[in-house]
Amino acid sequence: MLVDRATGHAFARVGERSLLLPAESVGESYQMAQIAQLAGSGQSRAETESIVVTTTEHHHVIRPVPVPGTDGPLLSVVFDRARTNLALARRELDQRAEVLLA
């Protein structure tokens, strides 16, 4: 699912919709993670790269899609936990996100 960070609008969805997080909460979750990261890093300018929520059945991964100079949308993906190596999945997701809007 591709979500507008600021407004929480879902630009596009594919796959099993019932498993996806609500689009509005994807944007809010990402921004809460940014605030938490800021609080924990002091004066560091490190930016939040992604957030992962793991349930007993799924991994929910949210990460921004790089767009030249603009407020890029967020990519929210759900993985089946039983069949997924999270490290490999995230690596592949990063590669796809880099070229999604390029």
């Binding site: 600021a6 407004t7 929480g8 603009t70 407020d71």
Partner: peptide
């Protein structure tokens, strides 16, 4: 260069 609704949010 952003949308008004996003800026307001």
């Amino acid at each position: 260069g952003r949308d008004v609704s996003g800026v307001m949010a």
